[in-house]
Computed example of a mutant assay.
Amino acid sequence: MRGLNRQDKQREMNLFLHRSNAGLFGLLETKFKRAKATQAALNLCTGWSFSSNLSHIPGGRIWLMWQHLIFNVNILRTTAQLMQCEVEHTGTRNKFSITVVYGFNDQMLRRDLWQDVEQIQGSVLGAWAVMGDFNCVLKRDERVGRPVTAAEIRDFKRCMGVGYLVELRSSGAFYTWNNKQGDDKRVYSRINRVLVSGAWLTPLPSSEVHFGNDGLIDHCPAMINWDDAIQRAKPRFYYFNIWSQALDFQQKVRENWTQRIEGTKMFQLVGKLNRLKGTLRSINKRHFNEVEIKADKAKAELEDCQTALQQNPTNAYLTRAEIQPAATYHKLHQARIQFFKQKSKLHWLT
Rank of each mutant, 00 (worst) to 15 (best):
F156L: 04
D155G: 12
D133K: 10
C159N: 07
A127D: 15
W177D: 01
D184N: 15
K139H: 15
D133A: 06
R146N: 04
G182M: 13
K139R: 13
S171H: 01
W128E: 11
Q181G: 10
D183R: 13
R169H: 11
K157D: 02
S170D: 06
D183M: 11
A129E: 08
V137C: 00
V166F: 05
L165S: 09
A173G: 01
M160Q: 13
A151S: 07
P147G: 06
R190E: 06
K139A: 13
L168K: 10
V166G: 02
L125D: 08
A127E: 11
R154I: 10
V124G: 11
L168F: 08
G163K: 03
C136R: 07
S189I: 09
L165D: 08
M160E: 11
E152G: 00
R186Q: 14
L125P: 00
L165K: 12
F174Y: 14
F134H: 09
G172M: 01
Y164K: 12
G182E: 08
V137Y: 01
K180L: 05
C159S: 12
C159I: 09
C159F: 10
R146D: 01
L125F: 06
Y175E: 00
L138M: 05
R186M: 13
W177C: 06
Q181V: 12
E142W: 10
L125Q: 14
C136F: 02
K157E: 09
V187W: 02
S170C: 05
V162G: 08
S189N: 12
I153D: 01
N178S: 13
R143F: 08
R154N: 12
Y188V: 05
T149K: 00
S170H: 03
F134Y: 09
D155F: 07
G145C: 04
V166R: 08
S170T: 00
Q181Y: 14
A151M: 11
E152C: 03
F156V: 04
G161W: 15
D141Q: 13
C136P: 07
Y175I: 03
M131T: 10
D133S: 11
G163S: 12
F156K: 02
E167I: 13
F134A: 04
W177R: 01
T176N: 04
L138C: 08
T176W: 00
G132I: 12
Q181S: 09
R158A: 07
I153S: 00
Y188H: 08
V130R: 03
M131G: 03
F134V: 12
Q181H: 14
V162A: 11
K180C: 14
W177V: 10
S171K: 13
R190C: 15
T176Y: 07
C136H: 02
N179G: 05
E152F: 04
Y175M: 05
T176S: 10
V144R: 09
A151T: 11
I153W: 02
P147S: 11
V144M: 14
A173I: 03
A173Y: 05
T149R: 05
T176C: 07
G161N: 14
N179V: 07
V130T: 07
E167Q: 06
V166T: 14
L168I: 09
T176P: 07
D184I: 12
V124W: 04
V187L: 03
Y175T: 03
Y164C: 09
G132C: 13
L165G: 09
A150R: 06
L168E: 04
G161C: 06
L125N: 06
G145L: 04
S170K: 06
G182C: 15
F134K: 12
